[in-house]
């Protein structure tokens, strides 16, 4: 009997099996369903139907807009927070960071319910469904924006700022020429982590928008109740949109500049 030898390659086998069964095969199943009809014949009917139906296109557009606004608002709030936390000489800033992140540890449904009560108390529930949805999403995804920004900003070499000051650059110039460009990997990974889920998180839009706001995730859910083929097609199209946006924001870059940026 030969001795079993663990090479590096064989250590990778469990991961390969996992990827095969939980990533690649499901994806193939989705593609299969998307391009077949109810009689399981190959068909482009779903594809054509999707792109000729203004309702479905509108839903994609609305989801994109909601996701864009959510991401922008998250970025606007998170950048200053991350910047202050990373660059200031404050004592115990870890505690502040923790305060921003702790909500993530509380059950999601509970948080959304709390926001619902809050919005009701403010008299907004049922009055401003789109605002409520975006409000809930921003609240929910903010930590995912702060964390990667914080880690990249923290890793910028202190000497760069000294050099910049030496050469006579003011605070603003230093920010635009040094801080911002060097934090772009953090921005990119923050965007990917907020943008994608906010297109599909229909629990927020159902609870806070009283189900009057339909985003693409809800659409997929509803189709999977009645027509798997159309549901798969919508899921596939979402996948393409997600892939494109990740690629455009540089989420696939393997440069060393992104170190620490991806959680």
């Amino acid at each position: 009997m030969t001795r079993l030898r663990f090479t590096r390659k064989s250590l990778g086998i469990p991961y390969a099996v996992f990827l095969l069964f939980f990533v690649i095969l499901p994806m193939l199943v989705i593609v299969f369903y998307a391009f077949t009809d109810k009689q399981m014949h190959v068909s482009f009917g779903n594809f054509i139907q999707f792109f000729s139906d203004p309702t479905k296109l509108s839903t994609i557009v609305y989801s994109l807009v909601i996701a864009l606004i959510t991401t922008a608002v998250c970025l606007l709030i998170a950048y200053p927070v991350a910047y202050i936390l990373a660059r200031s000489k404050m004592k115990r800033k870890f505690v502040i960071l923790l305060l921003f992140v702790t909500p993530m540890w509380i059950n999601f449904v509970l948080r959304v319910n709390a926001i619902r009560e809050l919005l009701n108390w403010m008299g907004l529930l049922g009055e401003a469904n789109y605002f409520n949805t975006i409000f809930g999403m921003v609240y929910d995804f903010l930590p995912f924006m702060i964390l990667p920004l914080y880690t990249t900003l923290l890793k910028i070499d202190e000497s760069l700022f000294e050099a910049s000051a030496d050469l006579g650059a003011g605070g603003f110039t230093t920010f635009t020429r040094i801080t911002l460009p060097l934090s772009m990997p953090g921005v990119a990974s923050g965007i990917t982590m907020v943008f994608l889920p906010s297109m599909t998180n229909y629990v927020v839009s159902d609870m806070l928008g009283n189900s009057k706001v339909t985003i693409i995730g809800k659409f997929i859910y509803e189709y999977f109740g009645t027509n798997w083929h159309m549901g798969s097609m919508v899921a596939l199209i979402l996948l393409v949109v997600v892939f494109l946006s990740t690629w455009l924001t540089g989420g696939f870059r393997e440069d060393e500049t992104v170190r620490g940026a991806n959680l």
Partner: peptide, 12 residues
């Protein structure tokens, strides 16, 4: 079902 999705979504 199609009718329902038209009602539930805003159509541009």
């Amino acid at each position: 079902n199609e009718l329902w999705s038209r009602i539930k979504s805003e159509t541009l």
